[in-house]
Design a protein around this nucleic acid. Structure first.
Lengths: 304, 304
DNA sequence: GAGGAAATGCTCACTTGGAGCATAAGGAGG
DNA sequence: CCTCCTTATGCTCCAAGTGAGCATTTCCTC
């Protein structure tokens, strides 16, 4: 009955847009596929010809970047008030895709960018980035500038939780939002002398942050890193990839221990001498574990 | 530039629908708010007047059920081909809401239902439900009936992973999908002698499964159970609520140990004698931890 | 041939998580 | 009033998991 009532109302018109965060790891850099020379994520409207949302997203990415996609998962859906046009609502559905960087597309404007160009304060592999101190100072100033004590305390608490010494790499979105609120990024309406870091159109940088956060969380319990690896790799290469994504370094021996005891990889029998030092065994991902434990976890030594 | 190309294409029309999975725990039953006498979830179109997707969803639920909402989070967005009407695409955005069951709404058709009426095979609190064996038999028959060996092996693997002895309560969606594929639920196009369990219109039962899966996963690392509890409760009541959601029993002493060492609750100083046995202390949730560790986890002894 | 860089093996101290034993404290029934 | 039943609470044990390091091995470069 309420169903019926629902049906009687004129359904509101809307436009659905598909936005993709496509990630690869090349060398030791986590990279994201962009269009418009790094200032936007691949995107396009959901059309009648698309079999599904995901299919539509794949089609746009392939059309705009000529890059094939592998693993894909939905991220988040939002409707900005700012995105309203001609009385219709614009709903944006974002996806996270994992792939390996192929030949540079010859499409104009299509480039792979290290995601740390957009979030330079997120790369802690070489210790805390210098700018973190500046950020801390400016955030505190912003917190102190609050009108009432409650807001002030709340801001300080959030600063401590997101930029604290025990930095949690999954909180990238919360950190970005804090910077946005504090007017430290150019996209912010209250921006004043923004800090370093490339911006993107609309809320694409925010969507990128969402994708990174999801990925940083997911590598801890699902074997998704392997979607970013070449067919054969050494354990150190695997570790470097995880470190690139997480933005922090890991204990080598423990990393190997966990990977091996998880039975996620198997030796190919080959050995590489391409690196310095003692030659390393090459491994391959045991694809079958994906089905085996689509469920069970994969666990990486990323706990804190 | 690719951006520009995107803009030049005529944006496809779509209709966005909001669907809500509203959960409460009453007594020892996890309940879901339904309309149409249990056959549908509250839902309605996203309209221009809605400030945001979430606001729209709240407004529909309140309008259809007169039930106030608390905690809410987005679940998933999908576009069924079947949902196409008049050449437009229908995008459905689903939400999960947690609340406490208030007075029964006087709206006709609005009822709270135990979610195990829809998924009777998911309640393992009293041991494996009798129907699980039947399900296993029928699923195996379905697997064996596959044309080629690969499909057969794959089906058996999935059956083992989802209905295996070490049943993982989070896989409720995968189990439902398997039953759907095997034609064991009435919604399935290949349905034949469906097993027990109430169906819902469209894919609402599937959305409910998604919501339950999310909630079962989330209670393990975020203090969301408290959204479902009264202001003051005993630790056993809290445990019963978690068990109701997870569909399985927990070790009492360990449960208390974890809850207490997490500092999630504090004693009210009161004692209740409303239950049998030794009177229990009443606790209240420390609301402030939500902000304290919006981040950090809460962890419940639900690991396996 | 020496030194440097990585790969590998192993140890140790601690933390967590799953189980179970034992005791305490009300209420109900006799 | 006494006994039994039920639930609340305290604690102990043990196994598995995790964070840090030490020690060796094996190539390459100089």
């Amino acid at each position: 009955m309420d169903q019926v009532r629902t049906r009687q109302r004129p359904a509101a018109e809307a436009t659905a847009e598909l936005i993709a965060v496509i990630v690869a790891v090349t060398g030791e850099a986590p990279r994201v596929l962009t269009i418009a020379d790094g200032s936007a994520l691949p995107s396009g409207p959901f059309e009648v010809t698309h079999r599904s949302l995901q299919a539509g997203m794949r089609s746009w990415v392939e059309q705009q970047t000529h890059h094939p996609l592998g693993y894909v998962e939905q991220l988040y859906t939002f409707a900005d008030r700012d995105r309203t046009r001609t009385g219709k609502r614009l709903v944006a559905i974002s996806y996270l895709g994992l792939t390996r960087e192929a030949r540079t597309s010859d499409e104009p404007g299509v480039t792979w960018q290290s995601w740390y160009r957009y979030f330079p304060w997120e790369d802690w592999r070489g210790g805390a980035p210098a700018m973190v101190e500046t950020i801390g100072t400016r955030l505190k100033a912003w917190a102190e500038a609050a009108d009432d004590a409650t807001t002030r305390r709340d801001r300080l608490r959030r600063i401590g939780a997101t930029f604290g010494p025990t930095l949690n790499e999954e909180l990238i979105l919360q950190r970005y939002e804090l910077l946005w609120e504090a007017g430290l990024v150019p996209e912010s309406p209250t921006a004043r002398e923004p800090i370093d870091g490339l911006a993107m159109t609309h809320d694409h940088r925010r969507i990128l942050a969402t994708g990174i956060a999801r990925l940083r969380a997911k590598i801890k319990y699902r074997p998704v890193v392997f979607e970013l690896m070449p067919p054969r790799f050494t354990l150190l290469q695997l570790q470097r990839a995880v470190e690139a994504l997480a933005g922090r370094l890991l204990h080598k021996q423990n990393f190997r221990r966990v990977i091996e005891q998880q039975d996620l990889v198997e030796e190919t029998g080959e050995i590489t001498t391409e690196t310095r030092g003692r030659p390393a065994k090459l491994f391959r991902f045991r694809r079958d574990v994906i089905s085996e434990r689509a469920v069970a976890g994969s666990k990486l030594p990323l706990a804190r």
